[in-house]
């Protein structure tokens, strides 16, 4: 009876910083193709904020792909059918491309699945070089910027 506030809260109007912290806890499968990135424009913007993509763990590839397939099921038959047949290596390539693009040079740590090969490492090495150059020439670091050195770890090294 004392409740004068409306029952519905403005979830879409949450501060961007706060949404970024929530999205950082959502996990990669949902960030890649889940509802969080498509619910509304404010949530989409926060789920794509580079801060959310600073540390990415791709080691549990099975969970990642099953979540993606489950979520993609309603998106269109052709897309879903094609996605199921994408070879492992190519799929990792496309995921890495998204991850690197989203992180926009802010990446701190990236953990790769066991099957990652030289091609993937080469792609990452090239991307990482690009970030250093960008940081070096502009010499402008965001306040919360991590060290520009990138830690790339494959399971054989990490475990």
């Amino acid at each position: 009876m004392a409740s004068s506030s409306p029952p519905v809260r403005p979830w879409a109007d949450l501060q961007h910083d706060l949404l970024v912290m929530i999205m950082s806890r959502v996990g990669l499968p949902d960030l890649l193709s889940g509802g969080a990135t498509r619910a509304c424009s404010a949530w989409r913007a926060s789920a794509r904020d580079p801060l959310v993509w600073r540390r990415v763990d791709l080691r549990d590839w099975a969970i990642l792909t099953s979540a993606r397939r489950r979520l993609a099921a309603g998106d269109g038959e052709a897309a879903a059918a094609g996605r199921g047949r994408v070879p492992l290596q190519a799929a990792l390539c496309s995921v890495l491309e998204i991850v690197v693009r989203r992180a926009a040079g802010r990446m701190e740590a990236l953990l790769l699945p066991e099957f990652a090969d030289e091609e993937h490492l080469l792609f990452l090495a090239q991307s990482a070089r690009g970030w250093k150059r960008r940081i070096g020439t502009k010499s402008v670091l965001p306040i919360a910027a991590p060290s520009p050195s990138l830690q790339i770890t494959t399971p054989s090294v990490a475990n």
Binding site: V8, R9, W11, A12, L18, M21, I22, M23, S24, R25, V26, G27, P29, D30, G34, G35, A36, R38, A39, C40, S41, W43, R44, A67, R70, L71, G74
Partner: peptide, 28 residues
């Protein structure tokens, strides 16, 4: 609380999330 919100988001379709949080669709 933020983990609880994140857990609610997990595994849901955009429509399910809009329903759960009462969010309006406003994508361009």
């Amino acid at each position: 609380t933020t983990q609880c919100i994140a857990d609610t988001i997990k595994g849901k379709t955009p429509e399910e999330i809009r329903t759960a949080f009462g969010i309006e669709y406003d994508l361009t």
